[in-house]
């Protein structure tokens, strides 16, 4: 039985993961900053509370599944997996380097514990449907599939093909999470390609939709746990997050979608994270 963490403990873990994300990206010299920082609370909730898994047995046949559909946010998954015991945290600094298991976008065949290979957007929900259908055929009824998707990602038509299929077969062991941070590479989502009314779109496709504050770990845990009780439909969690969460100069700014911090910016970001945005005094730097 996994030890349960208190919410303050989880918040501390999330801050540590964010620091690792900053260090990894600065060291890599390329990569995406805003999405991973915004998703950190969701990944902390998943790996430190919600999911059933064993980092020592990544192929355990009763594990829950996490599919990161927006593969560019993988730094948050790597950092969280390292904290969860899948591999040594030192390996995080190999992100995007030649020969690394931590590819710029996730590759299942490289790193045990990854469930899919992604980067090109719009595929995670389809893969989840395939997995859910296979589990049903296998009478594997106690496993859950969590799909993390970007909001810009759902511009992709493939997503809506999967949305229809999940409804058709009532794939109720899928909980999808849209990282609703309102940014994509070219700007605000509503300028690039308006997504709203997002809730009603998914409801019209036959999904049970829940809006939450995706940076509130407690609300993430409550929602993801509750989603297992909704048996008649697949569940879509629209997780409203702040892109770049935790680093003041990155927050809400779409320019940080696909950019890493440089050395100076990383130092500033780490200071901010360590002091919880100035709330902790007395740090000498």
């Amino acid at each position: 039985m996994k030890q349960k963490h208190t919410i303050p403990e989880l918040e501390t873990i999330a801050v540590q993961i964010r620091q690792d994300i900053i260090r990894m990206l600065e060291h890599a010299g390329s990569g995406h900053s805003a999405g991973p920082l915004g998703l950190t609370d969701i990944f902390t909730a998943l790996y430190f509370d919600v999911l059933k898994y064993d980092p020592k047995k990544p192929d355990w046949n009763q594990r829950d599944i996490v599919l990161l559909s927006n593969g560019h946010c993988v730094p948050v998954q790597y950092a969280t997996m390292a904290h969860a015991g899948y591999f040594d945290k030192k390996e995080l600094m190999t992100l995007r380097k030649f020969g690394s298991r931590l590819q710029g976008h996730p590759e299942r065949t490289k790193l045990p514990g990854l469930e899919n290979t992604s980067g090109p957007l719009g595929c995670g929900l389809s893969q989840a449907c395939g997995m859910a259908l296979a589990m049903r055929m296998n009478q594997d009824l106690h496993r859950w599939i969590y799909v993390v998707m970007g909001d810009g990602e759902i511009n992709e038509g493939n997503v809506w093909e999967a949305a229809m299929l999940a409804n058709k077969y009532k794939l109720n062991n899928i909980t999808a999470i849209i990282d609703r941070n309102n940014i994509q590479i070219d700007g605000q989502t509503e300028d690039v390609m308006p997504l709203e009314d997002l809730r009603h779109k998914w409801e019209a496709f036959g999904w049970h939709v829940i809006d939450i504050d995706g940076n509130n770990i407690e609300s993430v845990i409550d929602t993801l746990t509750m989603s297992r009780a909704i048996v008649e439909k697949p569940v879509m969690v629209i997780a409203h997050t702040i892109p770049g969460k935790g680093v003041d100069f990155m927050e809400y700014d779409f320019h940080w979608h696909g950019a890493p911090p440089n050395k100076k910016q990383a130092k500033e970001a780490l200071h901010e994270l360590r002091t919880l945005q100035g709330k902790i005094r007395g740090e000498h730097e």
Binding site: G130, A134, M135, A162
Partner: peptide, 25 residues
């Protein structure tokens, strides 16, 4: 019980296939 009708959605067709295979099918 081992057949899935995907509808006219070829992108979904092969990607669902990827998910089925990931579970040993």
């Amino acid at each position: 019980d081992r057949y899935i009708e995907i509808g006219i959605a070829e992108q979904n067709l092969v990607t669902v296939g990827s998910g089925l295979a990931a579970m040993g099918k």
